[in-house]
Amino acid sequence: MDKEDRKSDAELVAERQRRFEEDLVDAYDEELEMEVDDRLLDGSSAFTPEARSDRRHYFRELFRLQGELVKLQDWIVATGHRLVVIFEGRDAAGKGGAIKRITQRLNPRVCRVAALPAPSNRERTQWYFQRYSAHLPAGGEMVLFDRSWYNRAGVERVMGFCTDEEYEEFFRSVPEFEKMLVRSGIQILKYWFSITDEEQEIRFQARIHDPLKQWKLSPMDLESRRRWEAYTQAKEVMLQRSHIPEAPWWVVQAVDKKRARLNCIHHLLSQVPYHEVEHPVVTLPERVHNEDYIRQPVPASMIVPEIY
């Protein structure tokens, strides 16, 4: 008789409940592991009673909002809604951290992230919006753009990667492009993550001194730091010339990373008329047992060594 068969029903229920709780804690540990980055930036102040209380509140709200994001995902699938969320901002503004928290509990087949590299030689000869159009959502999908077609209004303008004519043509085209998407049924949300000069310097210094984060710093990032004022001017022009009723800009105050994440997710949820979708009750079927089935042992040479 199998060992599990010898356990009482009460013991089985208690054991399974313990495993459910362990699995839940393990899922939340992923967020706690990422939290180490923020503690390093906060230094000794991260361990004060006030900071610990704030952290508990942050996690409670984050997990609650992530639960709402799951409801939003279910509604998007059920209704065939198409949603595009654009994340723009300076380097180290916290866009990636917010995107991670949004996608953390969602189905990657429903919620996709588009983070396009620099255009290839072929793509440079295409219609500017062409390579972005390929990543737009189908019915029942949500796409998060980690930087978007607004590269032309930001990095390309500041670094001289586009001509004045291309820059002006972008601002003539982008309102019409976005209006066309909205008319076709795609909802567009555009977020600019705003940080101060001092905060970006602190975050860049943290990346320089952290071996696990140095890969985030590219020569382009360092040059963008030098051209802070040029980026500021480009951002101001971008917000002014592409803020349209069909697809307005929303500015996220992002000096405090945790507040920025919560505020962004809360606002995103408020912009979509979602509601909880009823699901049929799921019943786990009994596993089929065949008396003539004999499980074959796995060769020891195939087993990953248990170092830990």
Score class of each variant (00 low, 15 high):
G140D: 07
F161C: 05
F87W: 01
L136T: 11
Y167M: 05
L136I: 11
T79P: 00
S120L: 11
L72N: 03
M159T: 04
I102W: 01
N151V: 10
Q187T: 15
L83H: 05
I186M: 06
P137M: 15
G67D: 11
F161R: 03
L83P: 05
E168A: 14
Q126S: 11
C111Q: 08
E68M: 14
Y132G: 14
H81T: 10
P175F: 12
T163V: 15
P108C: 09
F145Y: 09
Q126C: 06
P108F: 09
V84S: 11
L189E: 01
V155A: 08
A98Q: 04
A134P: 05
F193S: 01
V110P: 00
C111N: 01
F170M: 02
G96M: 06
P108M: 08
S173E: 10
R183M: 09
R122F: 09
R105G: 03
Q126A: 12
G94Q: 05
F177P: 06
G94W: 01
G139D: 14
A93L: 00
A98Y: 00
N107W: 06
Y167P: 04
K190H: 00
R152K: 09
G80R: 14
I102K: 02
D91E: 10
K95F: 07
E178K: 06
Q187A: 07
G80T: 14
G185M: 09
S184V: 07
V158L: 07
W75Q: 02
V84T: 02
F129T: 04
L106E: 10
D91S: 12
P137I: 15
G89S: 00
R101T: 11
I188A: 03
N107C: 07
L136D: 10
V84C: 13
A153K: 00
T103M: 03
N107H: 06
N107P: 04
N107K: 07
K95V: 04
V182M: 08
V155S: 05
Y132I: 02
S194T: 06
A115D: 12
K95S: 09
V85E: 03
I186D: 02
A153I: 00
V70G: 06
A118T: 14
F177I: 10
I76W: 07
M159P: 04
R172Q: 13
V85Q: 03
L181W: 05
A114D: 08
G154F: 02
M142W: 04
P137K: 13
R90G: 01
P175D: 12
Q187R: 14
R183H: 13
L144D: 09
E165M: 08
E141T: 13
F145K: 05
A134W: 09
Y150S: 00
I86C: 09
A93V: 00
D146Y: 11
R152G: 08
F129E: 05
Q126M: 14
W192D: 08
E169N: 13
A92N: 00
G154W: 03
F170R: 02
F87L: 04
F87V: 01
A92D: 02
G96W: 06
